[in-house]
Design a protein around this nucleic acid. Structure first.
Lengths: 322, 322
DNA sequence: AAAAAGAGTTGAAACGTTTCCAATTTGGTG
DNA sequence: CACCAAATTGGAAACGTTTCAACTCTTTTT
């Protein structure tokens, strides 16, 4: 294999000198630099990153651990994360956990063995205890502890906003619809905001939720439609829930938005093929992605962060369902 | 750093023996194995993958180079690719090129430096010439040469199928709508199939295409709607094109499917929030993904492949637009 | 003119693993 | 009991890089 030694030999210098030329570290006489560069050119030499990573005991690789890249919210997030990483020469390793705790742990261990520089985690496990080493981690939408910084949208305000928009659109008895995930999931605050605002405004409301994961849509939505026939507004915890609800409701000749107003959360629909365009609480995905990586960089550099949780503001995006 | 040496010392054996235990290579006495395993347990030792990669001069990392993970077709593909890779302990590195040739080349060079085990490429460049080393590559939808195996769907048959379905749905003057990409792109065969079948059936047809990339939708679709007001069927080269066309057509009070039947290509819509559900030529995404990785494995193992291009059959999935 | 400072360079050690040859032990056989 | 083959183990080399102490020149200062 072509190595730094070959370059050194051809240029008539020592390996250390070649290394200094390549990394621009230490002093090198212009004439020497020229000779080395020419030798590099001539041999078509490229540094061996694997050897470099080994020697340095660190790599410029960041892992993104999430349930499924197939989900549009995550794929948008991943797009911006990769872009932000690339700006600093970092590489992205993608890990789909399918939301299975055992797979999350399996990946976490693998990532430690591979000495990744950092991890962005969207997990169901409390990964804190599972990561023995000191790999920097930033989590999205999950707040475990001080050690793992969390980036999320302002779920509480989003919940309040959703309630207000439903009422504004004419709903008299809005329902919160979602699933119950773990306690550390920030998304639960969407319900809190919704409920608090309903109480504050003196609006009658319903909370409908089942434990995660919702496996049988027929039962989930069927039950809701049966037991809560009187609701005229739905705040779904995600756009996905909203879309499925709308689908089922229409099958039962419930018109959206005439009979029931619907507001989702996420704002994943940005292509022409999404209809109806769901009125939704839009998360600032790009900003969240870039901030996540910037915070991760800080952690990698060993800087301390001001906050445990960074909450980015959300906005209401009117669609065709209110 | 905790290394194999510490384990060896604690277990009272040589490093080579520990290595043999870990990798199950060579013979080790049961009693010795037990002692080593206990030492590993006790120290909570995990092998350093980076060092291993370095020593072996290869890593179990495969790169996926594509325009944008944000696109639903690619994110579905990536999901299955990651899954298939994980089954053999391979890791996935994600590279978004944004479809820019210079970024493709930049990534390609980086991947060589990082000695990835293989590359799955969905690129606009002819990457053949850019990869000097012998990294195994499998390409999706692009056929460059013998060296780079290509996995694709049966675009030609898909084109024929689309034409037949449009006619079956009542179209008398169907149009092909798309963009012209590079000559090596297999997707161009969708048009060929469409045209050949139209001729074979004696059907009047239109071909409308602009050079890639289509930057201004207003002009693209506006021009089509103006110049081809008499078409009553559209075969769009992708579902994305189909969706955008439908959007514009409706703005001009053209009803789909009453006035114009539409068939797309890809089959990306698998969630409730897609409406109208586009009638489309569905690519077997999962199968393509798994086959791609299996072929890549063969190349990594140094086996030779039977074909240069592997074409998987497509199916017509009726939606609400025919 | 001698000493000090600085610039440039060398060469070897170290990173953690695998692998291979040699050395040792084991077990079986004559 | 001696001998041989097989099984097991030890130990060192090698992978390609960075880093650092030591060394050689060159320039500046006194």
């Amino acid at each position: 294999m072509l190595s730094i030694k070959d370059v050194a030999q051809l240029a008539g210098v020592a390996v250390g000198t070649v290394s200094r030329v390549i990394n621009n570290s230490g002093a090198v006489k212009p004439e020497t630099r020229r000779r080395v560069e020419q030798a590099i050119q001539e041999l078509n030499y490229v540094p061996n990153e694997v050897a470099r990573n080994f020697k340095m005991q660190k790599s410029k690789m960041v892992a993104l651990l999430l349930p499924s890249i197939w989900h549009p919210f995550f794929s948008e997030l991943a797009y911006y994360i990769e872009d932000e990483l690339d700006r600093e020469g970092y590489k992205l390793m993608l890990c789909n956990s399918s939301g299975k705790p055992e797979k999350e742990l399996y990946y976490l261990e693998m990532l430690q063995q591979n000495k990744v520089a950092g991890i962005v985690g969207i997990t169901y496990n409390d990964i804190e205890s599972s990561v023995s080493t000191d790999i920097p981690i930033v989590s999205i939408d999950r707040h475990f502890s001080k050690k793992i910084t969390c980036v999320t949208s302002d779920n509480y305000e989003g919940g309040r906003l959703a309630l207000r928009e439903l009422v504004k659109a004419g709903a008299r008895k809005p329902a919160f619809m979602g699933s119950v995930t773990a306690v550390y999931s920030e998304t639960m605050k969407r319900r809190e905001g919704f409920v608090d605002e309903a109480k504050a405004m003196g609006v009658d409301y319903v909370v409908y939720e089942k434990p995660d994961p919702v496996t049988d849509d027929d039962i989930y939505y069927g039950e809701f439609l049966r037991d809560h026939a009187d609701v005229d507004g739905v705040f779904a915890i995600t756009d996905m829930f909203a879309a499925k609800y709308i689908e089922r409701a229409r099958e039962q000749n419930i018109r959206v938005p005439e009979d029931v107003k619907v507001v989702g959360y996420d704002g994943i629909q940005d292509h022409a093929y999404f209809h109806p365009l769901i009125s939704t609480i839009r998360q600032p995905v790009e900003e969240m992605a870039r901030m996540t990586i910037q915070l991760l960089y800080k952690k990698i550099r060993g800087e301390s962060l001001d906050l445990e949780t960074y909450r980015l503001p959300v906005t209401f995006r009117p669609g065709e369902t209110t």
